[in-house]
Design a protein around this nucleic acid. Structure first.
Lengths: 234, 234
DNA sequence: CTATGTGAACTCGTTCACAGCT
DNA sequence: AGCTGTGAACGAGTTCACATAG
């Protein structure tokens, strides 16, 4: 019994009112990430088509067995000997990861990275709506990016509440990141995605994810070194 | 023994010539990522200072015990009852993750994201050198970004070899990503960081890491939902 | 007495193999 | 016969607790 049932029992409380058949167990975070990817693969197929775990797994670049395990957290099942109907599977994943609701996002920092994020094409289809753009630079404030006007970050508390923002994205230089985080948290934002290097101090109850571009490269570089020496000098 | 030696035996071959005392065990990937972060925290301190695991862990936002375990893969030790000397620790981490060598990076796709990467300030200090910029858009080719001229991606094979590029970064739209990857791999690049959505097909022996911005947000959104329901409707 | 270094327990995630539908 | 669904082995990574050195 590797992970028989020591911990997970506690939080396996129903997510919705009884009667509504929902995923019985908590969906692991790693699975949520992959479900989002399956969604993208499925988007390229006709909803009426049928897809097998092997096919979907290949397209998403994952192991078929793992994929099936991921799908086992959903409330819909596939058809044995056949596969999964694209339409229902899509709908099911959407509901499971919350892509059927819209999540309103505020973006702080409109340098190149911020602008890349503001114009990111995949968001709308995933229920992610950029609702506000902020920057501290007077030269940027008032300009329009991706159909939205950049506003002064000082106005963020009011704007975030008015726009019902639930997710904040920080794409500022490192030295403004903490201030941006404080502002967002003060505006009631409970989830923050941080692209600036360095740790962020936030009160308990606020979820922070970090994406550090240099770290990703560093890991690759590390592997590169090991390979160089293992594979010899071609 | 925790992970005594079931699988990792094969690649636990020495990294350097014998005589040079190096990390005896293979460094886990998760540790490599964190080591890179410690490096950044350490950069802000005087090299002659001493820092405790508790202090460094707090600054990096990790658990002190885990941090000590991470450092146990290095060839230098701290001083019990005191802490780690910043200078030697820095040097030790640098060597362990290969930040003391320079890794030459080619960047394909100079939209906003590509430009953000080209201008990323943390790279040089980490041994990461952007050596070439490529794009397929004739309007971009010839322009200068971050001191480098954007070249035609068709020239990538020749340029990558001439510049001794070992790492490729793909920041193109999704529909050009596979072609970009093929070009890079054809040019001898063995490690690729992919920012475009979707899976990349590469021959065995090529390491690919993916950063999917939409997926990160989706995971946050998922947590947001769980919280909403747990914390009730404020 | 302080803070490091590390075995051992534990949690989380992935892979395998096969039973069970259709 | 084929593909799904899942229990169980496996492996990676994290946390704990404590022996140990300064």
């Amino acid at each position: 019994m590797t992970g028989e049932v020591t911990g997970p029992v506690i939080d396996s409380v129903m997510t919705t009112e009884p009667g509504r058949r929902q995923s019985p167990k908590t969906i692991p975070e790693a699975t949520v990430g992959r479900l989002a990817q399956y969604l993208r693969v499925l988007a390229d197929r006709p909803p009426v088509a049928v897809i097998s775990s092997a096919e979907l797994a290949a397209a998403a670049g994952v192991n078929p067995a793992g994929l099936r395990k991921d799908l086992s957290f959903l409330d819909s099942r596939g058809t044995r000997g056949v596969g999964y109907r694209v339409g229902t599977l899509t709908e099911s994943i959407r509901r499971a990861i919350g892509a059927h609701r819209s999540h309103r996002v505020a973006l702080v920092g409109l340098g190149h990275l911020g602008q890349a994020l503001a114009g990111y094409p995949g968001f709308p289809a995933r229920g992610l709506v950029i609702a506000a753009l902020f920057d501290a630079d007077p030269a940027k404030i008032g300009r329009t990016v991706a159909g939205l006007t950049i506003r002064d970050v000082a106005d963020a508390p009011a704007v975030c509440r008015a726009e019902a923002v639930t997710i904040g994205v920080i794409a500022t230089p490192a030295d403004c990141a903490q201030r941006a985080a404080d502002t967002l948290v003060g505006a009631g934002v409970r989830a923050v995605l941080n692209f600036a290097p360095g740790a962020l101090r936030v009160p308990a109850g606020v979820e922070v994810r970090r994406v550090d571009l240099a770290v990703e490269l560093q890991i690759l570089a590390f592997h590169g070194i090991r390979n160089d020496l293992t594979m010899s000098v071609s």
